[in-house]
Structures are given as structure tokens and as C-alpha cells.
Design a protein around this nucleic acid. Structure first.
Length: 730
DNA sequence: AGCACGCCGACT
DNA sequence: GTCGGCGTGCTC
């Protein structure tokens, strides 16, 4: 008898066995179609058994195995190291294996017929017909494509894809204007010129290169502008030269295009694959397959690309490793950064975690000697200096519209000198609340425990959590008072205020509302670079990724909300954001200045910030965490429940608590169930239960014992739950 | 999670 | 008399 053990995409913590007479060990890692209940499902074969496993205790009758419907042998099976990774992730995050597989495997792979996954010849050249066509082409885009080819000579398909739409390329190929080239031409002359590394970079590179081919976690702490990317690229170059692949992780989709462009420019002869959730499903599997077969040499992408199988891995780079976007916080939760470290160990290769403001978890690892700390304290451009940081004490100044007189004066100076200013405010919309002074009504969202935000431009109240919209009421919906007022500042209102103060200034607003498409965002960045804006108001979108060489003033309008937040990680995020926005200014020859408005200028966070002293801030904050036994000095898991009503959610948690393992593990704390900080979200009410342990091992032993009980808890209608291991926000 | 089976209220 | 609510139980 031959059985296959199948992981199915179900929220059940078990596997299902099926009869498959023709199956063998070689089918492990293949997709399989199976009957399930009275439907069919596609799962992944994770094991092959020659005889039925012994009857489990408590099992009544030996059941009959159903036969598999079909095994998909059109694709190679997923390799053992990939299955090991997904298996580890499922165990570590206590998620059903089938669901982890569903997260890790592109959906088209599962559904896919034997599509032509092997890459065709990627080289394209301009044909004589194309050369002729350029003359009488009326379409601007097609002409631009052909002229690019004429100027640069043959190019790899994926290079062209990065700059031209797919449809355009297809059109040019079908008309015969672009023809495939059999052999890759010599293109060494086209390699982009690269800046010479400075002393610090050379030293860091020497360390990295000395450890290629071995497992080692490096924490590369380099200040903004110290040239971390250059280090990654040079290290990658060495790895590629050894015939090995490089996996690059970046935090956000928004950052991939520029990074991708830089990587492609640097390695024009290598096959680069870009993976994130906005890539068309078909191309994602293609990239997945090319990485697995070894055709793709550089794989870059967001958190989901940590699940890419690699044929010959040589290096993993996690850029901006502190960034919270590495954590998946919906559905099955995982941290791509943490899994990356596991993969590096699995593959016995080095991993570089880079950041100007490392996560305290990583910093702590470095200081305990688990990670090897590499530092770069100087900006790579000799002329560039760090910005000076000043605090504006809001308790000493009147700020009627969120802009203090000192900040206004500073803005005026830049305007007169023809320099750019950047204002940073983490609140989009016009005003965060519309409120009634007489009865206290404050634009509540009907579905969330949050206020609806006033968006004056489109005349709506909008909830930023669930998306609910409503027209702006003319009188208070609660008491009929006609004097309802916007309360507080959002980016739109600041933009308006600035326009009133500086009617001659060209003001640009950059937030999710104004730059909703990638194209719009790029256009805005371009306008700033061209000097077509004097003042830019924006949210944290501004802090990430791009440099603004002409900006000499950065104003932070409200730094305080994070200082006394109930989230113990809020100061860490604030520090990182302030360092990042500060880093946007004062590039090249212009010295930059940062002005931070605060009601708490004596807060120690600012003292560290003014000295550009990440290490000092980290030491201070780690000390606090140690005293309070917060992570990384304890290990947490969160059981989260959603239900139509909070009572139902709490009831589930009470029942879950009733089945806690009797043999209570020592050094472990189980806190009482509480409603979540944001109790209501999108019409669902949420509660949570926190488990905290002194050691990771104890936490996992405990969860292993407890979870079967939790799965067995009788759930009222509408209740759903999930476990969050190493949660980022409580 | 789906999807069945199963036992009590307002309807053509 | 039925259609349909969702409580409960199962999926190799």
C-alpha cells in the first residue's frame, strides 16, 4: 500500500493521508488533487508512506483512505530545503502547515497546468525592420522603445520590462521590430560606473567576503548616506562571480523600482527577478521558478520573497531590517527578517541585516555576540555632513495651526534663499476629527473605535481603518449645533496654512491621497528633484527611500504622540523615523537642519537624536525593556479573537484559558484576556490574551501543549481566532 | 474554513 | 403544511 501525506490549505492543525498507488518518494513536494469531504482540493505532498500509520489513540474505526485524483508531475517537485523552511515556519508560528504552504507558494503554481515556466531566450535586439519603422512611427512610446534599443544595442528582456510596458514589448516583437538574439553579446562596456568604496566600506566588505560560504549573521549598522547599498552590491558581485545567487529583501513595494533599477544597472549581464504582491501572478511563478532552477541570479523582493526556493544560494541581504513591514500582520503571521536568518543558517551562507536604526532585537543579538556587528559611521560623500537637529518647545510658543513661529521663520528663510523645505506630519487628511464643541460629538466611525478623518478636498469624512465614508455633516448629527469644527492638523490643512502664509511658494503635498499611483509618486519626486517645489508636506511616505538633495530644512510637526504611547515600541519607531527624515536633508554641499516641534523637549530620545547617537538611544531603551521584562528580554505570543460582539470574543478567550495546560511551565506568564486597544475594527470586535515567557523554548513548549485545547474550544458563531508569535504591536 | 445534517419559527 | 435560521460535527 502506498500513501501520500498531504498538506491542505485549511485552518486545521493536521495533515491528510490519501492512497496513491503510483506515488513514490520523488513526489514529495508535488501538488496533488484530492477529494475532500464532498469537494476537491489541491494540496502539497509532504511525505510518502509505504504502510498506514498505527491507529491513533481515541480513534474509533479504522477509516478508508480515499485515492488521490491526480499528481501534478508537469513541474519539478519543490526541493527539500524549501519544504524544511515552510515546515519550520509552520512550527515556529504554530500555523497549520497547509496554510503556511498557501502563503509560501504562488497560487499559480498550485493551480498551474504545465505552463512554459522555463525562460525563453531573454535577449532582444533591434531588427532592420525595426530600424526602418522608427522613421514613420506615430506612437511615441513604441518609438522610444526602438530608439532605446538602437542606442544601447541588444538588451535582456527583463531590462526592457523594467522600463517599458509588457504590451508594448509584445507589440514590438509580433511586428518583428525586435528580434530574439541567440547568444548574449559582450556587454562589459555597458556596465554602470560605480563609486569607489571608501575606507569604512572596504573594511566591512573584507569582513563579509571572508565569511562567504559559511553561516554568519551580520548586522550592518550604517548611518544614512554611509553607502550600505554599495556594500551590498559589491558583496553580491563577489557572490555572483562564484556562480551563486543573491536574495535581497526590501521592506516595501514602493522601494523596489529604484532598487531594482540600481541592481539591473549594476549587473546588466545577470538575470534579475523581482517579486512582490503587485507583480502579476503569472510573472511571479515565473520568477519563483527561475530562482528555483538557478536561471535567476539576483532575486529581490518584499517579505513574501523569503519563500523563494534558490538553486545555489550564496548571500541574503535584508535592507532596513528594522522595518515593521517585514512582518506579515494579516492571515498567517510571520517575520521575513527572522525567517531569513533561519534560511541563512539552513543554507550555511552569510546574511547581512542592514539599517541606520536597527531593531532592538537585532541590536541586542549583536551585543550578545549572536550577530557580528559591522559599523559605518561616516557618510560616503566627504562633503556631506549630518544635519543639525533643533527642538522647538511648544510649551513656550503659541501654535494656532500646528506651525510654530520659529518653524515659520525658518521656512521663510529657505524660501528667500531659494532652498527647499520638507514638513513631516504623520496624519493625512484635513483634520483628524470633526468635532462639536457643545455636545462633544467627534466624528466617530460607525464600524471602528476610531474617529473619521475630515477630508475637505472631496467633501467626505473617512475612516482610515475600515475605509467607511460619509458626507461632511453641516450641523452636529448628535445635537444639531451648526458650529462644528475641524480639530487638529492633517497634511491637507497644513498645506492650506502654508499657502496662506507663503502665497508665493510652490507647495506640494505627498501622502497616500495625493500620490496614490506609482506614476504620480514618481512624478512628484521628479518635481522635487527638479526644484519645482519650495515646500513639501508629507507623511512617512517621505521618510523612506528617496533622497532630496536640495532640501535644507526638515520640519517635524508633531513628534509627541509616539512618546507616551501605550505601545512600548512606539519610541523605537519614532526614533527610526526621525533619523530617516533627518537623513533626507543635508546631502551634497548644502548643510541640513532639522526642527522638531515637541511639548517634551527634555525627553531623552531627543538628546540621543541630536547627537545622532543611535547606540545611546538603543542602550537606554534596552535598559528600560530589561527592567520591564519586555522583548527582547521576554518572548511573547498573542491569542487574538474577533467576533461580532466583544462579549463573544471575551467568552472564547475565557474558555481558552480554562484549558491551559496543568503542568504550568515555569517562567511563563498568562495575562487576563482584554479587549484590544482598537476594540472595534470594521464592525468586528476584538480581544486578546498575552502569553509571555522568559525563554523562547518555554513559550513554544507551552503553546504546543495548549493549542490543541484551543482548537477544540467550542466557538460561537462568527468567532475567528489566530495566534501571533513575536507580535509587533500589542 | 466550508459544508453537511438537524431541529424549531413565520410564510407562499 | 414547507423554507430557512444557525448549532454541531466532520473532513484521510
Amino acid at each position: 500500500m502506498s500513501l501520500v501525506r498531504v498538506a491542505l490549505p485549511l485552518p486545521l492543525p493536521r495533515l491528510f493521508d490519501y492512497e496513491a498507488l503510483d506515488a513514490c518518494e520523488g513526489d514529495v513536494g508535488r501538488c496533488v488533487r484530492v477529494p475532500f469531504g464532498n469537494t476537491e482540493k489541491t494540496g502539497l505532498i509532504v511525505d510518502c508512506l509505504s504502510e498506514p500509520p498505527p491507529i491513533q489513540e481515541g480513534e474509533k474505526t479504522p477509516f478508508e483512505y480515499k485515492p488521490v485524483l491526480s499528481i501534478d508531475r508537469s513541474k519539478p517537485p519543490l526541493p527539500a530545503d524549501w519544504l524544511a523552511l515552510v515546515g519550520f515556519a509552520a512550527r515556529y508560528y504554530h500555523a497549520p502547515l497547509g496554510q503556511m504552504v498557501a502563503v509560501a507558494l504562488p497560487s499559480v503554481w498550485r493551480e498551474g497546468e504545465a505552463t512554459a515556466l522555463l525562460p525563453s531566450n531573454p535577449w532582444l535586439a533591434l531588427s532592420p525592420e525595426g530600424e526602418e519603422a522608427i522613421g514613420d512611427l506615430r506612437k511615441k512610446a513604441l518609438r522610444a522603445l526602438l530608439e532605446t534599443l538602437r542606442e544601447t544595442g541588444p538588451q535582456r528582456l527583463e531590462h526592457l520590462r523594467a522600463s517599458f510596458p509588457q504590451a508594448l514589448l509584445r507589440e514590438a516583437q509580433t511586428t518583428g521590430w525586435l528580434k530574439p538574439l541567440e547568444n548574449a553579446p559582450e556587454r562589459s562596456s555597458l556596465s554602470a560606473l560605480a563609486p569607489e568604496p571608501v575606507a569604512e566600506q572596504i573594511a566591512v566588505l573584507a569582513q563579509l567576503r571572508a565569511h562567504l560560504g559559511k553561516f554568519r549573521s551580520f548586522l550592518l549598522h550604517g548611518i544614512t548616506g554611509s553607502g550600505k547599498t554599495e556594500v551590498y552590491l559589491r558583496c553580491a558581485q563577489t557572490v555572483l562571480a562564484q556562480g551563486r545567487q543573491v536574495l535581497f529583501l526590501v521592506p516595501e513595494i514602493g522601494l523596489t523600482p529604484q532598487f531594482e533599477a540600481r541592481v539591473r544597472a549594476r549587473f546588466p549581464d545577470n538575470h534579475v527577478v523581482c517579486l512582490h504582491s503587485k507583480i502579476a501572478p503569472k510573472r511571479r511563478v515565473q520568477g519563483f521558478f527561475e530562482a528555483m532552477s538557478g536561471h535567476a541570479e539576483l532575486i529581490l523582493g518584499t517579505r513574501l520573497s523569503i519563500f523563494t526556493p534558490l538553486k545555489a544560494p550564496g548571500l541574503i541581504v535584508v535592507d532596513e531590517e528594522h522595518d515593521p513591514s517585514y512582518r506579515q500582520h494579516e492571515g498567517i503571521r510571520y517575520s521575513a527578517r527572522d525567517l531569513a536568518v533561519w534560511r541563512a543558517r539552513q543554507w550555511q551562507i552569510p546574511i547581512v541585516l542592514g539599517s541606520a536604526t536597527p531593531s532592538l532585537e537585532s541590536w541586542n543579538h549583536a551585543h550578545k555576540g549572536h550577530y557580528h556587528l559591522l559599523q559605518m559611521h561616516r557618510r560616503a560623500h566627504a562633503k556631506a555632513v549630518l544635519p543639525r537637529i533643533h527642538l522647538i518647545d511648544l510649551t513656550q510658543q503659541k501654535v494656532p495651526e500646528g506651525l510654530s513661529p520659529s518653524l515659520l521663520r525658518a521656512l521663510e528663510h529657505r524660501l528667500l534663499r531659494g532652498e527647499q523645505s520638507l514638513l513631516f506630519l504623520n496624519r493625512r487628511g484635513y483634520a483628524p476629527v470633526l468635532s462639536c464643541p457643545s455636545c462633544g460629538w467627534a466624528s466617530p466611525c460607525p464600524h471602528c473605535s476610531a474617529h473619521q478623518v475630515l477630508h475637505r478636498a472631496d467633501g467626505r469624512l473617512r475612516c482610515h481603518h475600515c475605509g467607511t465614508q460619509a458626507p461632511i455633516p453641516r450641523v452636529c448629527p448628535s445635537c444639531g449645533n451648526s458650529d462644528i469644527l475641524p480639530w487638529g492638523q492633517g497634511t491637507q490643512r497644513v498645506e492650506e496654512t502654508l499657502a496662506r502664509h507663503f502665497p508665493q511658494a510652490r507647495i506640494l503635498r505627498l501622502d497616500r491621497d495625493s500620490a496614490h499611483t506609482q506614476g504620480q509618486w514618481a512624478r512628484f519626486l521628479d518635481m522635487i528633484a527638479q526644484g519645482q517645489a519650495d515646500m513639501v508636506v508629507g507623511t512617512q511616505m517621505l521618510a523612506k527611500g528617496h533622497d532630496f538633495p536640495k532640501v535644507t530644512l526638515v520640519g517635524v510637526l508633531d513628534a509627541d504622540s509616539a512618546l507616551f504611547s501605550s505601545d512600548f515600541r512606539a519610541p523605537e519607531r519614532l526614533f527610526s523615523q526621525l533619523m530617516q527624515v533627518g537623513g533626507r536633508a543635508g546631502r551634497a554641499e548644502h548643510p541640513g537642519e532639522v526642527l522638531i516641534q515637541t511639548r517634551h523637549p527634555a525627553h531623552p530620545l531627543f538628546a540621543c537624536l541630536q547627537k545622532h547617537d543611535y547606540a545611546g538611544f538603543a542602550a537606554l531603551t534596552l535598559k528600560e525593556r530589561e527592567m520591564a521584562l519586555f522583548p527582547p528580554f521576554s518572548f511573547q505570543a498573542l491569542l487574538c479573537v474577533q467576533a461580532p460582539a466583544i462579549e463573544t470574543a471575551m467568552a472564547f478567550l475565557e474558555k481558552a484559558m480554562a484549558c491551559l495546560p496543568h503542568a504550568q511551565v515555569t517562567a511563563l506568564r498568562v495575562y487576563d484576556p482584554v479587549p484590544m486597544r482598537m476594540m472595534r475594527l470594521a464592525g468586528r470586535e476584538r480581544a486578546q490574551l498575552l502569553i509571555e515567557s522568559d525563554t523562547r523554548a518555554a513559550l513554544h513548549r507551552f503553546l504546543l501543549e495548549w493549542l490543541p485545547g484551543v482548537y477544540a474550544v467550542r466557538r460561537d458563531t462568527g468567532v475567528s481566532w489566530h495566534l501571533d508569535v513575536d507580535p509587533l504591536d500589542l
